[in-house]
Amino acid sequence: MSHPSQSSYNKSQLTRSRTRDAWLFLLPTLVVLSLVAGWPLLRTIWFSFTDASLSSLEATQFVGIDNFMYLLDDATWRQSFKNTLFFAVISVSLETVLGLLIALVLNAHFKGRGWLRTAVLIPWAIPTIVSAKMWGWILHDVYGVLNEILLFFHIIKEPLAWAASPDLAMASVILVDVWKTTPFMALLLLAGLQLLPQECFEAARVDGIHPLRVFWRVTLPLLKPSITVAVIFRTLDALRVFDLIYVLTSGSLETISMSVYARQQLFDFQNVGIGSAAATLLFFIISLATIGFIMAGGLKQDGR
């Protein structure tokens, strides 16, 4: 045998010292992450099997899956589950379509493109709380400017209550989320567009293919990886929505999300057990979604 056996393979001092240093350099981050993320997560999961309440976290008793049974029975929890899914699906779909449109416009060559790109960054830069408040004011049922504009153009006959009305509350939340997050989507997709090989489009143009056909047959298929990644990130983000709903509609029943529900149970009702159970469920739903996405081959995870 000309090949030495694997056991005789001695790693050089360089490799060994580099590996050792790598772990040394990673150690602080790993310690901090397990302290601020790992440990609290485990505690939350533990609380979800207890009757813990905010005033007496120490004197808690194990209650098995009672909290989860309670959630299954609770109409508000079921509503929050439906709301969250509805919100995530609709807003991410709208953001993807609009984001793609904006990305295409930003990718075209025309005067003032730089200004447009700058303008698009503004909604992204505004804190969610601020944008919720700003839109709360724009959507105000009595003094809101949106009602004034729509009345002026005769699109509506009388002022709408938007965020305050049961019918339009969820639509308002989605509207504000789309306004705030579409730019982010557009920028990601724009980056994807700019990575596409320019030759394909030039060839299509030389061949005289209709631009719409080019879009469906060339741009969209080539852009699919970027779209997939952007949609995954946004979906995982939308599933944990909290700030916007908490501020814009104060977590009304029509818009309550799973995150809002969990916090309500934890701190408004002081039911740490039930709140933790809700949080744990949300955590597992998002994990399942992530795993599903990875299985679908959306995320490339190799470390190279």
Partner: peptide
């Protein structure tokens, strides 16, 4: 596998 010598010294695992 095997060894490398520089100036008579076995440097196979030397940094």
């Amino acid at each position: 596998g095997g060894s490398l010598f520089i100036d008579g010294v076995d440097v196979t695992t030397l940094p």
